[in-house]
Amino acid sequence: MNNAIPITQLDYRTVLTDAEISEIEHECEQYEIRPAAAIDALQIVQSHRGWIDDESLNAIADCLQMSSAELEGVATFYNHIYRQPVGKHVIHLCDSISCWLHDFQIIADHLSDKLGIQFGQTTEDGNITLLPNVCLGCCDKAPAMMLDGELVENLNIASVDEILDKLRGGSNG
């Protein structure tokens, strides 16, 4: 008797904001079918909320008239959809070949040390998440990182320190 009918039906309008919905609807217009906007919709909601929690995932699925299992399959396929909370700032350090040739590992170790976290983790204060990224297309200006969506090129220890100071200052003030 354990499948009593769910009492309340999920309605995405109660979860997603009007802004999110209108952006998603805008994307839907571009495709023959609604589920085609899945990746766009995930990115939209993520841009508002930082990451995709289960509730948002279910709401997006409802909005796009697809099953949440299927949307989960999509969300977990792509590198830049976060299904776990991330910090206020996200650092994506390029770890591909040109950056490797420019010894990105030194930068990586330095970042890890200074933040006290491994790649894939978030600082305890929830400020910074450190992630690796495949080639950022800045091979001529290696090593490079993407900080909150902005490219930062020709990294060295000094410039990394400067960035971290700024991020920390930002979170304090």
Partner: peptide
């Protein structure tokens, strides 16, 4: 359309699947 990141999306038929969401 901006992708959510995956090298295989460059392969044309995978790209089509990605564009279909």
């Amino acid at each position: 359309h901006t992708s959510a990141g995956r090298y295989i999306c460059g392969e044309e038929t995978a790209l089509i699947n990605a564009l279909e969401g």
